[in-house]
Simulated scan of single mutants.
Amino acid sequence: MSAGSVHEFQQSLARLDTASTVVSPDEFETELKDIIETPAVGAALPFDDLSLSELPVQLEPSPAQLREAVTGVTGARMSIASLGTVAVESRSQGDEFVALYPEFHVVVVRESDIRATLSDAFTWLRAEFEAGRQSLILATGPSSTGDMGALVQGVHGPEQVHIVIIRDNESQ
């Protein structure tokens, strides 16, 4: 993925009042420690070389831990630069619950998993569906609703979102 797509993704996120940080794989744990507000819950990241195990994050949280958590940390194997959208999978590791219950959602995405447009994302989604992975949440910014008049954030999900973009090794 080009640096231009990362820049466009960050611009889209900024328009959505969503914070973002770009880090190398080596900076990942240190950066997350600074971002996470405890108590925190998480789902195992869908990346072989990145883990939450050394961070102050409860993996495989109980329902009580989900209710008490301030931060939820998940990974996303796809995002859309033009929209500031991430795709959170509904896996047995609990990604969906971790993403929606805490008031603060931290999403980890790789630079190479940023798709430029919705059309590019549909190509990825088609391959995922054909592989049998058919349950995803497409999330764009903090949860919000205007059903009752004024726009209110955090009604159906997190009030705040922070995206951590992991630079690809070849672009460091």
Rank of each mutant, 00 (worst) to 15 (best):
G75D: 07
G132M: 07
S135Q: 15
A87F: 15
A87V: 00
R91N: 14
L66T: 06
V107F: 02
R77W: 03
A69C: 10
I137K: 06
V86D: 05
I114Y: 03
R91L: 15
S79I: 02
V107N: 06
F129D: 02
W124A: 07
L83A: 11
G94M: 06
E111R: 08
R126W: 09
Q134S: 14
E103H: 09
R133S: 15
F97Q: 15
I80H: 03
G72V: 13
S144Y: 00
I80V: 15
L118S: 09
L138C: 11
D120V: 03
S92Y: 12
H105D: 08
A127M: 08
G75I: 02
E89L: 12
A99F: 04
W124G: 00
D113C: 10
V98M: 00
A81H: 02
A87H: 06
D95P: 11
F122P: 00
T123K: 12
T123P: 00
S144A: 15
A64T: 15
S62K: 10
S62P: 05
T85P: 04
Q65D: 10
R126I: 06
I114T: 09
F129Y: 14
V106A: 10
R67M: 14
F104T: 06
L125E: 01
E130W: 01
S79V: 02
A69F: 11
A81C: 04
P63Y: 02
Q134F: 00
V73T: 04
V88L: 03
